[in-house]
């Protein structure tokens, strides 16, 4: 039996999560997000345009309502664009020896960290669009809460698979 020791912990000396070390997601994923953005905005404005074109008489009487809706759509589009443009470089994964972290969001930045020895099972999901861009979503499940506890969308398929293999080895060793 190893000699028992109970040294006091120096909080400053603990390994700490460094924000600069996060690795970004593949640029293909940025293209995908941009495409989604473009399609949604196109649909919104096309819908607005069609409504205004065909209901021109109503538009004359409801002038303020129309302006409000148009303004709201533009504001929404702008905010979303800022979120995507500023937020994408922040999106990233950090794999350390014992845990995995995922950071995302510009307006609301969130960093989730899951220790490897708490993972119950993992999952790689890929829809048809994601397949076209060769990215996938890595999902990690921990105990006690329904739903995926860590979702990393837009991961490179090869990288996700390698990571998952490492995870499985670790879990089977534990």
């Amino acid at each position: 039996m190893a000699l028992f020791s109970n040294n006091s912990l120096r909080i400053d000396a603990l390994p700490s999560l460094v924000e600069e070390e996060f690795e970004g997601l593949p640029l293909r994923y940025r293209t995908l997000r941009a495409a989604v953005y473009a399609i949604v905005m196109l649909l919104v404005f096309a819908g607005l345009g069609v409504l205004i074109w065909f209901e021109w008489k109503e538009v004359q009487t409801l002038r303020w309502g129309v302006r409000l809706v148009t303004g709201a759509s533009i504001a929404f589009g702008l905010l979303w664009a800022i979120e995507e443009i500023k937020g994408f470089p922040l999106r990233g994964v950090l794999v350390r020896e014992h845990d995995l972290s995922y950071r995302s969001g510009f307006f609301k930045r969130e960093t989730v960290t899951v220790p490897f020895n708490r993972i119950q099972h993992s999952e790689i999901a890929q829809g048809p669009v994601a397949r076209a861009f060769q990215v996938c979503t890595l999902k990690l499940y921990t105990a006690g809460n329904s739903g995926a506890n860590l979702r990393v969308p837009g991961m490179d398929v090869e990288r996700a698979k390698r990571l998952r293999q490492q995870l499985d080895e670790r879990v089977s060793h534990a």
Partner: peptide
């Protein structure tokens, strides 16, 4: 006993 740790900061808080 922790399963995961999440830090969140909004734009105002940052």
């Amino acid at each position: 006993k922790a399963q995961r740790v999440v830090l969140t900061e909004s734009w105002l808080m940052r």
